[in-house]
């Protein structure tokens, strides 16, 4: 059976032979074994429109499989020696060196407690190795990375929803932002942190995000209006 882009694939499906001459990147869900390309997860076989990048899109997956250079949101679970262990929802906990923060030196350690939330970038995401996080970019600046401020609420959602809300043209955040001011941090691992001025507002934003998963743009507008109306009663 010949598989083309847009087909549904199952683990073990043979997609094709590796072409040595063409430069092709095999993304998540694909594996090369003896010059043959196989799907290793179930989902839709896709190709990035502007690059020779093939991958399997897994909808509604809840388990996060770390991918290099993705930004994730994690909970610090352990402090041992010179690394923090961070739970990012993957099968293994990621490690985050205390030197991987802006301005951190051996003497000047970042102030992070167990249970804190960090927004970090994955630098090592191999299937045989422990994932590794950093909170600085290649220039040593923190940018948007680093420990999240106190307060707010964090919840998990499906990976599909996270990818959806991170699209540039996704209307939800703008619609909500007209009436509620809030901070948000969305990790590719399905964890979302929201902080608004009041507790009902925070719950409203979380509710809106979760409810938006299977809605069209018009429905999102309608839903946001509904939620804002409800918020007036709080």
């Amino acid at each position: 059976m010949h598989i083309t882009v847009g087909d549904v694939v199952l683990p073990g499906d043979l997609i094709g032979e590796q072409d040595e001459l063409k430069k092709v990147v095999y993304g998540p869900g694909l594996r090369v074994h003896q010059n043959q390309i196989y799907a290793v997860t179930s989902g839709i076989f896709k190709k990035k429109p502007d690059a020779n990048y093939y991958y399997v899109d897994t909808f509604h997956q809840k388990r996060y499989v770390p991918v290099r250079s993705e930004d994730v949101l994690g909970v610090v679970t352990n402090k041992s020696g010179d690394i923090f262990k961070v739970d990012i929802g993957s099968s293994e906990q990621a490690s985050l060196s205390y030197l991987a923060f802006e301005g951190a030196t051996k003497k000047n350690r970042p102030d992070i407690q167990v249970g804190d939330l960090v927004f970090a970038k994955l630098v090592v995401a191999s299937r045989d190795m422990e994932p590794e996080l950093v909170c600085v970019d290649s220039y040593g600046k923190k940018g948007k990375l680093g420990p999240l401020p106190e307060g707010g609420f964090v919840f998990s959602c499906s990976l599909n929803l996270v990818r959806k809300i991170l699209k540039k043209d996704y209307p939800l955040f703008n619609v909500l932002g007209k009436d509620i001011s809030y901070e948000i941090s969305v990790g590719m691992n399905g964890k979302v942190w929201v902080k608004a001025a009041t507790i009902p507002q925070t719950i409203a934003v979380c509710n809106a995000i979760l409810a938006a998963e299977h809605k069209t743009k018009d429905e999102i507008d309608e839903m946001s209006k509904q939620i804002l109306k409800m918020l007036a009663y709080c």
Partner: peptide
């Protein structure tokens, strides 16, 4: 079991002090 973040704990507690729960 993954540990609960401090944010979640404090949020739930402060919501309760306003007699509010996450699921409404």
């Amino acid at each position: 079991e993954s540990i609960l973040s401090i944010s979640e704990k404090t949020f739930i507690l402060s919501a309760l002090s306003e007699t509010r729960r996450l699921d409404g």
